[in-house]
Design a protein around this nucleic acid. Structure first.
Length: 471
RNA sequence: GUCCCCAUCGUCUAGAGGCCUAGGACACAUCCCUUUCACGGAUGCGACCGGGGUUCGAAUCCCCGUGGGGACGCCA
């Protein structure tokens, strides 16, 4: 039997990091076993589901590269099917109509809580064949009253629930629409899902689903309930910390493979290995190796991994991303070859592509201002003379390459009896406006001869007015 | 409240009864490399939630606490 997994988000909000991790594990498991990965949109909540959220989820999945083999299926398009199954259960006496009003139920709950009991439906219509005229009933599943529901979970092991703890859940609302727990059962059955991999907040739903599946004469799938991902402070992921759309990570300059690498290590490991390519994840991942405890989201580690992936990826992989981020900074980027040089020069000093873009802006526009503190520190009268000399000699250089520039700068520094740093820092300041850039030879090489000389001249001119003499 | 789940450095984790003086990674600190910032390298800081058992021996197995999380909707 081929493995079939599914990711079934509800489009009531954006796809966040927790959802993406669930999707990743489902996807990895299917890919590892050469099975199918099904995408299903659980949109039975007509009130809260939105087309925007659906689009966000699809975009997020595409960005992450978690491609599905079937779907997306929409539950709202399967209402006829659910209706048929409900009729079937009603006809066979495995479900019944309940005419309680919402007020009745609220009252029931309030009383139970007051008595210190677990709030649950008391089954008052379970054996009744009566009806209440003028009242639209809900349909409830007739859960077994005794015995136990046993979930054999791949990550948690054997989890036992007493049927007496469960109540008769509503499977069809009074308006006739089916509810989540029921739709999941029918869908997983119809779509022949072999492995249900989902967050462990669903572990408590599983015995109910199991009982319905059994009532429908089905063999249950394999269950794997993944530990939750918590916010950085160890509490539930919420909008205040960390629960942002995965697309925000794209906008902040994270690579999808780095995000996936970070997520795969939350609740799963392979010895001491930290860096995983997508291919390695597929080869090595097994849901049976997932651990049980929740983990907190740590941006620092994500950033570190992102840099690792940027450094190891072919430069050409990063170029279009850098171009995109530069564009967002209002910078029309140069040609492919130049961008590739920039990526190579900058990737070990940026955690994200966005940071790389910001750090690289000076390549495309001459500095508007110069770091004042740095000017005070590095630019003196004799440094100006040194720079002027350097500008002259650079102007003579015919081979405008990093090695040639490197050799020339070394010669100039030596000839003037100063360390390389004494020359490199003011040079850097003149062309970048600040004291941070890739090595000066590479920086000048990428910048080009014309632009370098222009910036040098301009800086000398500007600085010439406010420079204090040493003596 | 009831039910279910979970528990190793600040964080992610290794650990399947002796290999543990508890290993790695992020972060942090110091040093080295160095033309800046980084990258890289080295060192350091730093944890088995508590209490009982079981065992010759427990981070690992069992029980009880404690703490955290989840569920208890005509939400998913």
């Amino acid at each position: 039997m081929t493995v079939r997994t599914r990711f079934a988000p509800s489009p009531t909000g954006f796809l966040h990091i927790g959802g993406l991790r669930t999707a990743l594990f489902c996807w990895l498991y299917a890919r590892h076993h050469g099975g199918q990965f099904v995408l299903r949109i659980e949109d039975t909540d007509l009130e809260r589901s939105t087309p925007e959220a659906i689009q966000q989820i699809l975009d997020g999945m595409e960005w992450a590269g978690l491609d599905h083999d079937e779907g997306p299926f929409f539950q709202t398009k399967r209402f006829d099917r659910y209706k048929d199954v409900i009729e079937e259960l009603l006809a066979s006496g495995k479900a019944y109509r309940c005419y309680c009003s919402k007020q009745d139920l609220e009252q029931m709950r309030a009383q139970q809580i007051a008595r210190g009991e677990k709030p649950r439906y008391d089954g008052r219509w379970r054996e009744s064949t009566d009806s209440l005229p003028g009242v639209a009933p809900v349909v409830r599943f007739k859960n077994p009253l005794t015995g136990e529901a046993v979930v054999d979970d791949v990550v948690h092991g054997r989890v036992v629930f007493q049927n007496s703890e469960l109540d008769d859940l509503i499977i069809a609302r009074s308006d006739g629409t089916p509810t989540y727990n029921f739709c999941v059962v029918v869908d997983d059955m119809d779509m022949q899902i072999t492995h249900v991999i989902r967050g462990d907040d669903h572990l408590n739903n599983t015995p109910r689903q199991l009982n319905m599946l059994l009532a429908l004469g089905q063999r249950p799938p394999v269950y794997a309930h993944l530990p939750m991902i918590l916010g950085p402070d160890g509490t539930k992921l919420s909008k205040r910390h960390g629960a942002v759309s995965v697309l925000q990570y794209r906008d902040e300059g994270y690579l999808p493979e780095a995000v996936l690498n970070y997520l795969v290590r939350l609740g799963w490991s392979h010895g001491d290995q930290e860096f995983f390519s997508i291919a390695e994840m597929i080869r090595l991942f097994d849901v049976a190796d997932v651990n049980k405890s929740a983990s907190a989201f740590d941006v620092d580690k994500l950033s570190w991994l992102n840099q690792q992936h940027m450094m190891r990826a072919p430069a050409a992989r990063i170029v279009p991303l850098l171009r995109w981020h530069l564009d967002r900074e209002g910078i029309q980027a140069g040609n492919e070859a130049q961008l590739e040089q920039i990526v190579v020069a900058q990737r070990e000093r940026a955690k994200t592509v966005h940071e790389m873009a910001v750090n690289s802006a000076f390549f495309f526009r001459a500095p508007m201002t110069y770091d004042e503190k740095a000017v005070r520190k590095h630019v003196t009268a004799d440094v100006s003379a040194l720079l002027a000399d350097a500008a002259n000699q650079l102007a003579q250089l015919t081979d405008w390459s990093a090695p040639a520039i490197h050799a020339l700068i070394n010669r100039i520094a030596a000839a003037n009896g100063v360390s390389l740093g004494k020359l490199a820092q003011p040079l850097r300041l003149a062309v970048c406006g600040g004291t941070v850039s890739p090595p000066i030879d590479a920086t000048l090489a990428i910048l080009g001869k014309t632009e370098t000389l222009y910036r040098l001249t301009r800086a000398l001119d500007i600085w010439g007015h406010g420079i204090r003499s040493l003596s």
